[in-house]
Design a protein around this nucleic acid. Structure first.
Lengths: 232, 232
DNA sequence: GTGTACCTGACGTCAGGTCTG
DNA sequence: GCAGACCTGACGTCAGGTACA
């Protein structure tokens, strides 16, 4: 059951990062005012897709290529189940996938742009070795142990007692590789999240403005209406 | 000069948790419909306060007690250099402080609630130390290197050569305490952030709904208006 | 200015999920 | 279903900032 470390053992010193990197930054500009219907639908679709949490790749596909690959799911869905402060109902509905940059200025113009990793190749190197042994053995530090009470953390040293150094080395290298990749993934993930949040903030601002404008307009119209009514 | 990092591993059983825990969950309900002006002002004030990044405590104070202690400070702030993919107009305005839960149902009723920590008191342990290097990259140190160019990082081993074990122990305990606190703080911070994001998502949803409703209303009104106009 | 406490962005790791072959 | 790759939430740590004494 779930021994944690124990990396896979199909020797595969492959280092390719296999990035999907499709390279067409879409640029949809739903112009000013309020082509609401369109925008809304788009929104809905996106949200819907995101209902199943993970993998922005899918979304990317859908939006870039065909859409609605099996759609038909638009019940209440997200709709913010949390009705009051104490809730904690935590169904998470991201609203806008992190890949999608939805920049917009105050006038209401919105620009949806998709970005992709591009793997900035920060510095390539990333040396890092954990728990490199003081005395030659190679354990690896418990780092965090997080919350999870029952965690044990087998150290790799255990291996070396019964296996040839070769095997150990192999395993450790594999582990290293895995960590490296995960490290990078984490970085990317953080980036996306940040973008997502910024996007949200942006969206709120825009919507507020729109709202204000609409209210204003409504007020004016009503006034006009009333006065006319008076005259009549 | 900052206090140095003094890594070490003397597990000491100290775990006093000094918590501030102020205990008044405020509950402001700006009732339904759209008292826009009020809401907006509130919004603005909050945002303004948040322009200087940190410390939600202040905000707490302001909202709970008096307000506007010295408003007028919205500079550009850091602006976070990420401009990779493209434009990124990135004006970041947090909109809502994380402490504040601003839940609202679709009708427009909003509930502002402030929450605070409650501190779950986790477990201790944790050894490990990082080292940080090239440009923001953070590595694990193999326990004793401490090379790190610009970084100070005195290790305890060095110390122990010249100090009494007492001092070392003292220092280590201090470190441990610090770490413990920070650990907890981090947890709390994450919690707030999460809340904040959820709040944002919520707000977006609400605003969208409002928007839609307004548009609808506007349309109706216009129609009515036109028909009346026809008649006249 | 100094020192201390606290807050938060970013990091790397783990755990556990999804997707795909 | 299984195995591997990937994604992401949560963790603890560090670094650097703000607030306050």
């Amino acid at each position: 059951m779930e021994e944690n470390e124990r990396t896979d053992n199909s020797g595969n010193p492959q280092q390719s990062i296999v990035h999907v990197t499709l390279n067409h930054p879409i640029q949809v500009v739903t112009a000013g005012g309020l082509s609401e219907s369109e925008e809304l639908e788009e929104e809905r679709r996106r949200r819907e897709v995101l209902a199943r949490r993970p993998s922005y790749r899918k979304i990317l596909h859908e939006i870039a290529g065909d859409d609605q690959l099996k759609g038909d799911h638009h019940d209440e869905d997200s709709n913010s189940g949390l009705s009051d402060t104490g809730s904690e109902t935590n169904l998470q509905q991201p609203v806008i996938p992190a890949h999608i940059q939805l920049v917009s200025d105050t006038s209401g113009v919105q620009t949806i742009t998709m970005t992709n990793s591009t793997s900035p190749t920060p510095n390539g190197s990333t040396i890092v070795q954990y728990a490199q042994s003081p005395e030659g053995q190679q354990y690896f530090i418990p780092v965090s142990v997080a919350g999870t009470p029952g965690q044990t953390y087998q150290l790799t040293t255990a291996n070396s007692l019964q296996s040839s150094p070769n095997v150990t080395e192999e395993a450790s290298r594999k582990r290293e590789l895995r960590l490296l990749k995960n490290r990078e993934a984490a970085r990317e993930c953080r980036r996306k999240k940040k973008e997502y949040v910024k996007c949200l903030e942006n969206r709120v601002a825009v919507l507020e403005n729109q709202n204000k404008a609409l209210i204003e307009e409504l007020k004016n119209l009503k006034e006009l209406y009333c006065s006319k009514d008076d005259v009549a």
